[in-house]
Structures are given as C-alpha cells and as structure tokens.
Write a protein that binds this DNA or RNA. Structure first.
Length: 569
RNA sequence: CGGUGUGUAGCGCAGCCUGGUAGCGCACUUCCUUCGGGAGGAAGGGGUCGGAGGUUCAAAUCCUCUCACACCGACCA
C-alpha cells in the first residue's frame, strides 16, 4: 500500500473527550472516528488491525473444529420471550419495531437464535457435540459507553455455542476452548490471565474470564503469589480468620455521635481504627418489602455478587430505601448496627471475628462502643460478604492475594440447560428417548482486544503494535523521493520485492518532510521501519529501526531483503 | 438514573462576566523557498456560535426551555 492514496488520518492534538490512552491513540492515529456516544466508524487503518485479530481468532476456532455461521443482528421478540429474557434483560437490550409494529431487538448475544437453530436442525445424539461460532457486530445499549471502543454500544464479538449430550462432553469442549483462547491471546502477544469468573444466575461451576492486564482495566483480579489461583475479585472468597475471637474486654456503652454518619467520621470521632468498627448495610429482601441487614468490618467493602446469592436477598442487589430502613430499624443510614436489630442479619466472617467493636446504635446520632457478639447481640448468620483485599490468604490455601486490574477480552461459560430447556432443544439418545441438550458458550471481544493491545503496547510517540496485529508489518520511508531518482528507484524496487514476498508493507511516498513521516509511522505503530536516503545510499546502506528500538542500524543494501524477511518471521 | 461540566470551522481553543455584525493555532487549497525528526513566507477557502423561544434598536454574549456530549457516582450507612 502507498500512503499517497491511503487514508492516513493522523492528528497532532488529542481530542478533548478521550480519557484513556488507547482511546486517545486510536483517534490520533486515525483508526476510528466517533459517530455518536459509543458508536464508532473504523477507518481503513483501524479496520486492518481489527481484521488481523479476527483472522487469528477464526484460525484458532477453526482449528478446534468449530464451524462458522452468521446469524442476523435483528432478532424477533418471540425468541426472547421463549427464553424469558425479553423481560429479564433490561434496558441494555435495544428494542425496535418493524413497520407492522412487531417487536424485535438488536442482538446483544445469540443464545436464543442459535438454540432455536439447533432445536430445528439437530435431532440425534449422533450429530453431537457441535460447536458453532460467528464473528459479528453485537449491540448493547450500555448505561454508560466509555473509553472509546473499549465499552461501546456496537462492537465486534466472536461468539461460539456448543451443544452436548452430557456434562462430560461439555467439559471436554470447554477445556478445548480454554486452550484455544490461551493460544489466541498468546499469538496476539498480549499479557493475559484466565481467571475464575462469576456464573451469574445460571449457577454451575464452569466459567473463566480472560483478562488482558492493564492499569485502566475496569475489573479487578485477585492472584495468589503462591499458586496459580486467579479469580475476578467478585468471585474470590475471603476465608474465615483462623484465630479464635478474642474474649470481651470492654463494657458496651452508648455514645452520642451527632452528625457522625460514616465509618471514617466515626473512627475519627472515637479515635479508633475503622477495622475496629462495624458497618451495617440494608438491602432489599427477596419478598416484597422485606429487608436484610449485611454487617461488615468498617474497613471492608461489600461484594455485591456474594451478597445477592444469599438466601433471602433480592437479586440483583438493591440498597434499601432510607425511609423503609428508618421505620424497620429506628434509624437512618449512618446510625445502624446489629444490636437489637429486628430484621434478618448476615455477618461477614471478618466482622464476626471482632471483639469490643463500635457500631451504630439504631438511633440517629448514637453509636455503641465496646460491643461484643453473643454477650450484647446475637451473632446472626455468618457468611462471606466482603471484597477480598491485597494480602488476604489465597482461597486455595497457598500464598497471599495480590490485586491487579484487567480488561475482560474473553469469557467462557458452561451454560448447562438454561436455554435448551426453556426453548425445548432436545435430541434422541441411543435409547430413542428425548434428552435436553447441554450447552456451553464462549465469547471474545474482538474490537476490545484492539484497545486492550494499545493499553499494553504504547509509548509517548504512539502505538507499538504486537507484530501479529499491526496494520502493516513494515514501513518504507524514502527521503526526498520526489527529487532523488536513486532513492525513488531503490524504494520502488524494495517495495515490489517485499510485496512479492507477501509482506504487508506500507510505502510512504507522500511528498512530506522526513519528520512528518517518522512521526506518523511511529504514531500508527508499524513494528518495522526502513529509511532510504541519499546519504546512506551513497554508501550502499539502508537504515533499519524497530518500533521499540532505541537506535537505528545500517544494513548493506544487498542484504536488506534477507535481513527484513528474517526479522518479520 | 443522580451529580458536575462542556457545546464557537475537521481538531485544539479564545471571545461570553461588561450585548455592537466572529477570532487564534493546527489541518486544508494555490504559489515560492526549504527537505534526516511534526519547515518558512505570501495569498486563500471554510462557522446561520448545538437547537427553539424570549428580552433588546442590536444576542455567540442576558433569560427560559430543549438536545447532544463528556467525566464522576450508582460500594451508601
């Protein structure tokens, strides 16, 4: 490709509304342009990157024996009503009507469509297992699109769905997908980790997320420093303290605390550490109007996922209305505590371990100090409620947890029969009896990978693509090409030979000054660059520089082709 | 959805407080010079100032409504 007739839409200035590096660089390097909130046009250069990622994903999926299909983006409401998700999915499901006022949605995912397909097409256990996938635009009307392509309302996703006669077959394919995902992210040269993930309302054991590690990641991941345990923090169990609870050492006292409604304020008021106090959160119960109290140590944070799985607690988790709390507990937020509380109480394991603690007095403006479980109030039911923190013991018993941030780029999931049962996807088994098929689903955020790769691979001059996803592998930068016949001839000759060798090469034949060309090629992130100029050419040399190299090196003109081909692999 | 903030040329911004017919840098077009790290000069093109309504002789500027976008929050006891 020649830059003279290629859309190089680079910008010197960073658009004001781009927050994270990948978003800024994607705009500056001319990979994408915003159309509306969370909606982006892919420019030629960006699309090349996207296609390269897509190609690797497709190759690895095909290698596992999965078969590619293509399903409609527009899906009829009836299918979603069958699965129950027309009601359940919420406003993220972008709903539309056709000219006959029939309801449709734009697919955020394709479980319904694929299950309907398999229900109609697959009748015998002999046809299973089967794994079908597509690489297609998904639509989710996100509450808050963010970070450019990272959380957008339209995005490119690889989604695969497997169908099985039993759990054992599902687990086999699941492992196969796990391995394929690892191969994909390795080929893309990304630093990633598979982590144990939440299975949501579906339950079951099998779900992993694949995270690319990056500071700007929206998810927190907990790792053990003593084993290969890794989990999304929302899933990481906070183990019960091993030491027994200390014996009570203080008397319970009622203390006036006017205006003190937060743990920090309480700790300061009483001159204690937050970890010596309790916070009491009230959430909606699963029966109309019921409330449940959740008690945590003052310095700990509630884990919503853990909380909403507790019996009696409404899912999704919802904080109770303050008015209802006041009438049920006698005080508003900020003055609540477990002593004398008339609603069901769950106590976090760490909170249950405290003695002589401070907590709200269930009376506005009053707290209690020197409180002890059993003696002063019933210990309620103990549960794991809190978010793990760095330094906690690893749930697998070896090592301590570290917390890092990650960008979720893949998710694999053992679905079981949630959709097949709801939609009646059955096959005949070897005894001629109908059985409901067991399903797995496997997603990769193809467009998100592009942003994640930039988060991991950039410097002050721009993007530094991993080789496998660079829009072009090599840039040829001829200097003063319009005047110097020697430079032009050499550049054209090399360009032709590299094209013949199958290299993705970009010839910068614009009539621009050298600085402009260098800056553009670096911003765009092309991994390899050669410069052809009269000066070096007079010595029969050509200059080479890798995108991450400090300095350039001279290579004899006769050797340059071999030199480059060996570098490019 | 709540809070905060921003909408003026493709991008980045000034002008608004104190109303008087719109400006700067980059980018773009033409010409000359320059040509190894985002060149210099000259001459140009491009904006109904997000939209609607109001006040006024006069509105980018003041008032009302509205739309869009961004960031923060939705973990608070």
């Amino acid at each position: 490709m020649r830059t003279s007739n290629y859309l190089i839409a680079t910008q010197k200035e960073t658009p004001a509304d781009a927050e994270v590096v990948s978003h800024q660089l994607m705009l500056r390097a001319g990979l994408i342009r915003k159309l509306a909130a969370g909606l982006y046009t892919w420019l030629p250069l960006g699309l090349r990157v996207l296609r390269k990622v897509e190609r690797i994903v497709r190759q690895e999926m095909d290698r596992t024996g999965a078969q590619e299909v293509s399903m409609p983006v527009v899906q009829p409401a009836e299918l979603w009503e069958e699965s129950g998700r027309w009601e359940q999915y919420g406003p993220e499901l972008l709903r539309i009507q056709d000219r006959h006022q029939r309801d449709f949605c734009l697919g955020p995912t394709h479980e319904e469509v694929i299950t309907a397909l398999v229900r109609d097409e697959i009748k015998s256990y002999k046809q299973l297992p089967v794994n079908l996938y597509q690489i297609q635009t998904k639509v989710r009307d996100e509450i808050r699109p963010r970070f450019g392509i990272m959380r957008s309302r339209e995005f490119l996703m690889k989604d695969a769905y497997s169908f099985h006669v039993d759990q054992a077959s599902l687990e086999e394919t699941y492992q196969c997908m796990f391995d394929a995902y690892s191969a994909i992210f390795s080929r893309l040269d990304l630093e990633f980790r598979p982590v144990i993930a939440d299975t949501g309302s579906i339950g079951g054991s099998g779900s992993h997320e694949f995270h690319v590690l990056a500071e700007s990641g929206e998810d927190a991941i907990a790792f053990s420093d003593g084993s290969d345990y890794a989990a999304n923090v929302e899933m990481a169990e906070a183990l019960a303290p091993t030491e027994p609870r200390p014996a009570p050492g203080a008397q319970m006292q009622r203390v006036a605390t006017p205006g003190v409604t937060s743990i920090d304020a309480l700790a300061e008021f009483l001159s204690i550490e937050p970890r010596q106090s309790l916070k009491t959160l009230v959430v909606n119960g699963d029966e109309g109007g019921s409330l449940v109290a959740l008690v945590l140590r003052g310095d700990h944070q509630l884990n919503n996922i853990k909380a909403e799985k507790l019996p009696g607690v409404a899912a999704p988790l919802q904080m109770a209305d303050e008015g209802k709390v006041r009438s049920a507990c006698g005080a508003g937020f900020g003055s609540l505590g477990p002593v004398g509380l008339a609603i069901p109480v769950y106590v976090d394991r760490a909170a249950a371990q405290l003695a002589d603690f401070a907590c709200g007095g269930n009376e506005d403006g009053w707290h209690l100090t020197g409180v002890n479980w059993d003696r002063d109030c019933p210990p309620g039911e103990t549960a794991d409620l809190r978010e793990v923190v760095a330094g906690d013991p690893s749930p697998d018993g070896s090592g301590r947890l570290q917390i890092k941030r990650g960008i979720e780029v893949g998710h694999i999931f053992q679905l079981g029969t949630k959709y097949s049962a709801a939609m009646g996807a059955q096959v005949l088994d070897e005894n001629g009896k109908n059985i409901t098929v067991t399903m797995g689903c496997y997603g990769i955020g193809v467009s998100r990978i592009v942003a994640a790769a930039i988060e991991q691979n950039h410097d002050e001059r721009g993007i530094a693509w991993p080789q496998a996803m660079a829009p072009f592998q090599l840039a040829i930068v001829p200097l003063n090409m319009q005047k110097s016949e020697a430079v032009a001839a050499c550049a054209e000759e090399l360009y032709g030979k590299l094209l013949d060798a199958g290299v993705d090469v970009l010839l910068d034949d614009r009539n621009e000054r050298p600085g402009v060309k260098f800056a553009d090629m670096e911003l765009i992130g092309i991994p390899h660059r050669i410069v052809i100029g009269d000066r070096a050419l007079a010595e029969n040399n050509i200059e080479y520089k890798g995108r991450r190299d400090e300095d350039s090196q001279l290579v004899p003109r006769d050797d340059i082709l071999d030199f480059l081909l060996s570098r490019l692999g």
